[in-house]
């Protein structure tokens, strides 16, 4: 196999592992946000196993690429991804949301290597990532900053404050990925407070915009792995909430729904 096909195979295998592991964590704890975990796992797997430069043994290395998880509730995706990337052993995942665990319901950088910001309240990740990118711009550094936001999360105005400044400053090493699953906690984003036309909004703020199938690892690898240009980059990843498990897909109730034994067994049969 070529290097690229090796990479795509690794991303695919790890994404599957992340889905199975994350759903097991949610099932065991009967807590979590599996719908958003599953819509974002392919993006995280592509970043961690195909795009980003980092050293798990030196997680705060100055020139590392950064990943900021703005949708901090999708810890099933984040924790399994960082684990697979080598930041901590698999046994730690067993403690998910347990008393005193380092694996909070939302991530804490002081507990876990690889976490860049303590997110949870929405609309925080992009401003922080903007600050990281400004630091890199001041230093003329080559590292890149990636931030994943939910789509419903874009209803938070702080994102657009950041979009304006990042576009204004030509933060070329900043990439936002929008997990465009079109569902927020209660109902569809377009029924709640319309986001479309989303690409045009980002373009108007001075960003280069790309739309991809957020579950296609090759497409994700192409767009996320491309060298920085002159502007910040927005990747609208069209995704399916609950992707990979038939009864969860496109169901808002799986935002923070948890499986019973039968559902868990069925999901494990499908996630192969």
């Amino acid at each position: 196999m070529t290097d690229r096909s090796n990479t795509v195979a690794t991303i695919r295998d790890n994404a599957l592992w992340m889905r199975r592991k994350a759903f097991t964590m949610v099932y065991n704890k009967q807590l979590g946000h599996p719908g958003g975990d599953f819509s974002s796992i392919d993006v995280l797997a592509t970043l961690f196993f195909g795009v980003m430069r980092f050293d798990p043994a030196n997680p705060r290395k100055a020139d590392r690429d950064r990943f900021v998880m703005s949708k901090g509730h999708a810890t099933g995706a984040l924790y399994t991804g960082l684990c697979k990337a080598g930041f901590y052993p698999e046994e730690l995942l067993e403690t998910y949301m347990g008393p005193g665990s380092r694996l909070n319901g939302h991530p804490n950088r002081q507990y876990l290597p690889g976490v860049e910001a303590n997110t949870g309240p929405l609309g925080h990740g992009l401003p922080i990532a903007t600050g990281i990118a400004i630091a890199g711009q001041i230093d003329g550094a080559s590292y890149r900053t990636f931030v994943l936001t939910g789509d419903g999360e874009l209803q938070e105005g702080s994102n657009w404050e950041a979009a304006m400044t990042a576009g204004h400053r030509h933060l070329s090493h900043l990439t936002v990925i929008v997990d465009r699953n079109r569902l927020q906690q209660g109902q569809g984003t377009e029924e709640t407070s319309r986001l479309d036309p989303l690409p045009e909004k980002w373009q108007a703020f001075g960003w280069d915009v790309f739309e991809v199938d957020g579950h296609n690892h090759e497409s994700l690898l192409d767009v996320l792995g491309a060298a920085p240009g002159d502007k910040p980059r927005c990747v609208i990843a069209n995704t399916v909430k609950g992707k990979g498990v038939s009864f969860m897909e496109n169901q808002a109730k799986w935002h923070h729904g948890v499986p019973d034994a039968e559902q868990f067994a069925q999901a494990m049969e499908e996630l192969v």
């Binding site: 910001a117 990532a129 903007t130 990281i132 630091a135 890199g136 702080s158």
Partner: peptide, 10 residues
Amino acid sequence: GVGAGLANGG
């Protein structure tokens, strides 16, 4: 938020 990010960037 930018303040926090700048601190992250050293």
